[in-house]
Structure formats: structure tokens, C-alpha cells
């Protein structure tokens, strides 16, 4: 039984990693072929770094992710503190609406936002063009719920008396939030911001509907590249992304281990 489950786990991992492995191997292929390996070369990496469309899109993606993460973290943390202070009924209504962008199919969120932007421009006459502006607004919209849902549990775990004690000791409500509540919920804020950032970088479907013709993010460029028959630069790009992800996960795991050891030491 134990052997069987090992073999099965191995088979599943093989299924998950085979396509990625093939992409990585063929990123070093000399020819354009995706099936025959003709020789080792770095030329698709060179082509990738000379491809202005990809580099511009990468810049756009990172800029949009940074700005939208900043905004959604600010709004989301403030919202979580506010929601935590609401009565049961109001909190239920707000939280259920907050779940909407998470539960709804992404394509519906994308379509509904694109309708909103068209409506704002054509009917209300607001100067919102599809592009940077609409992308940032859309990304803040779908990533703020993740900030709220990561911060709220930390607020519930927190000792309520801490906040009142801070005020008894002379803090204004604002000071109490900044000096006592914020440090207490920091782990939730960091996780939430991190999720907002990665969802923003990774998003294709919603961005696809609100980006317009002028501004492209990296996933949108990747999609248009896959529509062409042969574009071996994608292999090189995938390999780089894979290595970056492995690196980030590795470092964050080591950091987590360190943190766990430190806390254990402090507790002892």
C-alpha cells in the first residue's frame, strides 16, 4: 500500500512537471522546432531581451502591480478595521459583496468592468480611457478582497482590550490604530499585499477585457504570442519565470523557518 501511494504520488508529479520540463529543455534549442532538439544555444534568451514588446509589457505589468497593490493594501486594511467594528448584519452584507469578485467567474468580472468603463465614458462623459487607468482600477477591485480576507482573521484574534488600553493610556483612536492595532495585524497585511501583488502580475482574463488596444501587460502579450504558430521566445520566458518562482519560494521558505525558530526561542 505504501509503495503504491509513493508510485502514484510520483506519477502525479510527473504529470505536473513534464510540460514545464519540456518547455525548459526546448528553450535551449538551436532551431525553432518544438519537437526535435538540434543543438544547445542561448539565442532565444537573446531574442527575448531584444524584444521591445515583451520588455515594455513587463514594465507595465510590474508598474500596475505595484500601484494597485499599494492602493488595495491601504483601502483593504482600513476597510478590514472598519468592517470588524460593524454589527453582525452590516458585516454580513459587506462581506458577501466582498466575496463577489472571488466567487464570480473571472470573465464576468472582466466583462462587467469593461461595461462600466464604456458606460462612464459614453453615457456619463468621464475621461476614462481603456489603458493604464482602467487596468489599475480593475486590479485594485479584484485584489482588495484578498487583503481584507487576510487581515480580518488577525483582527478577530487580537485582544480587544489592547486597543482600549492604548486609549486609556492617552492615545487618540487614530494613534491607537497606528501604534497598537497595525503592528498586531502586520502578518495578515503582508500576506494580503503579497497575494494582491501576485494576482495582479498573473491576471490575464480581467486585464484582457479592460486593457484596450494601447497598453499591454505581460500575460496579454503571451496570449497573443501563443496565437502565432511558432514563438520560441515563450520557452525562454517560461524558463526565467520558473526559476524566479523557485527562487522566491525557496527564499520565503527559509525565511519562514528562521522566523519559526526565532519565535520558538523567544517563547522559551
Amino acid at each position: 500500500m505504501k509503495h503504491l501511494s509513493r508510485i502514484y504520488t510520483g506519477f502525479c508529479m510527473f504529470f505536473l512537471y513534464l510540460p514545464i520540463f519540456v518547455l525548459i529543455v526546448f528553450s535551449f534549442n538551436e532551431s525553432k522546432s518544438r519537437a526535435v532538439f538540434t543543438g544547445f544555444s542561448f539565442k532565444w534568451y537573446q531574442a527575448l531581451f531584444q524584444n521591445d514588446v515583451i520588455l515594455t509589457a513587463l514594465g507595465n505589468t510590474l508598474l500596475i502591480a505595484l500601484i494597485s497593490t499599494l492602493i488595495s493594501t491601504l483601502i483593504g486594511v482600513a476597510a478590514a478595521i472598519g468592517i470588524n467594528a460593524m454589527n453582525r448584519w452590516l458585516r454580513g452584507v459587506v462581506l458577501n459583496t466582498t466575496y463577489m469578485p472571488i466567487v464570480n467567474p473571472e470573465i464576468v468580472t472582466g466583462v462587467s468592468l469593461s461595461l462600466l468603463f464604456v458606460f462612464m465614458r459614453q453615457v456619463l462623459g468621464l475621461p476614462i480611457e481603456l489603458g493604464f487607468m482602467s487596468l489599475i482600477l480593475a486590479h485594485v477591485t479584484f485584489s482588495t478582497p484578498y487583503v481584507i480576507l487576510n487581515v480580518l482573521p488577525k483582527l478577530r484574534q487580537m485582544d480587544k482590550n489592547l486597543y482600549h488600553a492604548a486609549m486609556d493610556l492617552g492615545c487618540s483612536p487614530m494613534q491607537a490604530v497606528l501604534r497598537v492595532v497595525l503592528p498586531e495585524i502586520m502578518p495578515g497585511i503582508i500576506t494580503g499585499a503579497f497575494m494582491a501583488f501576485t494576482y495582479s502580475i498573473d491576471d490575464f482574463i480581467i486585464s484582457y477585457f479592460v486593457s484596450g488596444p494601447a497598453v499591454q501587460t505581460l500575460p496579454i502579450v503571451i496570449y497573443s504570442m501563443t496565437r502565432k504558430k511558432v514563438s520560441p521566445e515563450i520557452n525562454a520566458l517560461s524558463t526565467i519565470i520558473f526559476l524566479v518562482v523557485v527562487g522566491v519560494l525557496f527564499i520565503s521558505n527559509i525565511a519562514q523557518d528562521r522566523w519559526a525558530i526565532e519565535t520558538r526561542k523567544r517563547l522559551n
Binding site: P19, A35, S238
Partner: peptide, 19 residues
Amino acid sequence: MVMLPMWINFLLRTYAWMT
């Protein structure tokens, strides 16, 4: 290992199967 592929954009993963 299960989560790692999720971090790579799904378009790239689908492209891998295309090839």
C-alpha cells in the same frame, strides 16, 4: 511541489501542452 506550477501563468502552462 503541487503549488509551484500554479505560480506560472496558466497561458504558459497551456502553451506547453500545445507543443
